[in-house]
């Protein structure tokens, strides 16, 4: 025996069709968002191997990044298909946001390494629409809130990159010198401080979801800046022991040795 049918069965069957479509689409969006997150994270890992700044990415990095661009494109197309109008884009914004934030992080990090400038929201949005493998799409999907939160995370990647740069280029002037230290390495600290100042100055109304997400990320962002400050501090303090006229590639001198002893 089964539940009696009711005069409202037809109406509810209509509702069921709509709701099932909604739930199924949400599932697909969640899955594509996870794929986008994963591909973007791998892209960032590849970018972290760059040892130059404000120059085109070395071919080894672009080659390593290649498959992840493909995965990002596939995720983009899946999302563009599902979220083909503004109504849907906003309806599933919460589900797609983690993936988009990670995309912003990867895009702005790559851009920073190539140009030493912060990629703007418009540029990121444009890049996102061009990311698909099958032509353009996904307009209006990437919200400015995704951009802001991605930029917060960008500071973490900049920190990882900069601390390593300070380590391998700063403290060991006599080694690997032939590869050439990137120009403006210390400008990275200035850029990070500028970003910190700009992000702290952002005035987001209390009680909004964006404010609470920012609240969670602010401390980590500050710590990233301070980690680079500390690395730079070490660089300066140690650099002050360099004897007058000491040259990295000279291998030091007898006087240098005596100089040290007399400290």
């Amino acid at each position: 025996m089964t539940a009696p049918t009711s005069p409202y069965t037809t109406m509810f069957e209509g509702f069921r069709a709509e709701l099932d479509e909604h739930y199924d689409r949400r599932e697909r969006v969640i899955k594509a968002s996870r794929d986008l997150t994963s591909a973007s994270k791998r892209l960032i890992f590849a970018l972290q191997r760059t040892r130059s700044l404000a120059r085109p990415l070395p071919s080894s990095v672009t080659k390593a990044a290649e498959p992840h661009h493909g995965a990002t494109g596939a995720a983009h197309d899946a999302l563009a298909l599902e979220l083909s109008n503004s109504l849907r884009a906003h309806r599933y914004a919460w589900q797609v946001s983690p993936g988009l934030q990670e995309f912003v992080e990867a895009a702005t990090f790559g851009h920073y390494l190539r140009h030493q400038t912060l990629m703007s929201f418009d540029e990121v949005q444009k890049l996102w629409t061009e990311t698909g493998e099958q032509g353009q799409g996904g307009e209006g999907m990437l919200q400015y809130s995704d951009y802001v939160l991605g930029v917060f995370d960008l500071t973490g990647e900049m920190m990882r990159w900069a601390v390593l740069m300070v380590a391998v280029w700063g403290s060991a002037p006599s080694r690997d010198a032939d590869e050439g230290a990137p120009e403006g390495l210390r400008d990275v600290l200035r850029d990070m401080r500028d970003m910190r100042a700009a992000l702290e100055a952002l005035d987001v109304p209390r009680g909004t979801p964006l404010a609470s997400e920012i609240g969670k990320k602010t401390d980590v962002m500050k710590q990233s800046v301070e980690k680079v400050e500390n690395a730079t501090y070490g660089l300066v303090v140690r650099g002050r022991e360099r004897p007058e006229g000491w040259m990295p590639d000279s291998g030091g001198s007898a006087e240098g040795r005596m100089e040290v002893d007399s400290y």
């Binding site: 390593l164 380590a167 391998v168 403290s171 006599s174 080694r175 690997d176 004897p243």
Partner: peptide, 29 residues
């Protein structure tokens, strides 16, 4: 990366003071 930094600092300290033995092929001299 912090481990890299620590040991680079040590090598720098030694290098600055000419303390790295010359015969070492990896000393970067």
């Amino acid at each position: 990366k912090y481990r890299v930094k620590e040991v680079e600092d040590v090598v720098y300290d030694l290098s600055l003071r000419n303390l790295i033995p010359r015969d070492d092929p990896t000393s970067g001299q």
